[in-house]
Design a binder for these strands. Structure first.
Lengths: 118, 118
DNA sequence: CGATTGGTTAAGCATATGCCTAAGTATCAG
DNA sequence: CTGATACTTAGGCATATGCTTAACCAATCG
């Protein structure tokens, strides 16, 4: 659970850039060729390609070349790895807050018992 | 929905490092002073402090100093921003796959109708 | 008081990232 | 075959990141 660090590194790092997230957002709506992904981005095509490379290295995007056009598609299960990590954190702190809540309940109950004793 | 980019940038970037995720994991189980967070990390204390700074800038961690000890705690709602972005992507591509499924259903139905015609 | 503990600041360095332009290569259209 | 299209590679540069060591404060402890 802790040794897959580099996977999560690549994944979160890939998502930590607005251009890359824009590409993922676009691909969530369907596959697209490189040039279409690059067009809306405020940068040169080679720069966009590098972002694509980062996304592909992170497993978020898969691409295939047919003729001279490379078509890119999202790899949905990659995102779920990130989601799982986040969920695991939530479960931990919710569990902790539950126990804290229980503890406060106990304190309150004891206090009421004390009051009743007086 | 697209202008909060820098928030997500900071958030995902903060999560894209194993040391920082380790800190978040530790804090998910409860607050801790700086030195306790730094101890398990394979780096100097100032380096750990920088990571803490990144986490705090991303809104993932909040800290307060009492006497000479600074106690850090997780800020759970920060993570949910990242989660929401991921969920939004999933909804988009699931929706698309649904429509693709519908389309394939239609094709299949038409094909069967054709066969019946023969 | 002086020493220790817990944290902070500062300076510097090596590598990584993000971008660019320029020059390819490989299709495909006419 | 010729030119346009769609990438792809290469080189280079500016800034950001991650880390280090060496001080430096400020709250305890003896």
């Amino acid at each position: 659970m802790l040794n897959q660090s580099t996977d999560l590194d690549r994944l979160f790092h890939a998502l930590a850039d607005p251009a890359r997230r824009a590409i993922v957002e676009r691909l969530s709506r369907g596959p697209a060729p490189v040039s279409e992904l690059a067009r809306p981005l405020p940068m040169s095509l080679p720069a966009a390609m590098q972002h694509l490379g980062v996304l592909e290295a992170a497993g978020l995007v898969r691409s295939e070349k047919a003729g001279r056009v490379r078509t890119c598609a999202i790899e949905p299960q990659a995102l779920s790895q990130a989601e799982q990590w986040i969920n695991a954190r939530r479960i931990e702190w919710e569990h902790r807050l539950d126990r804290l809540g229980d503890y406060l309940e106990i304190l309150k109950a004891e206090e009421e018992a004390d009051n009743a004793d007086q």
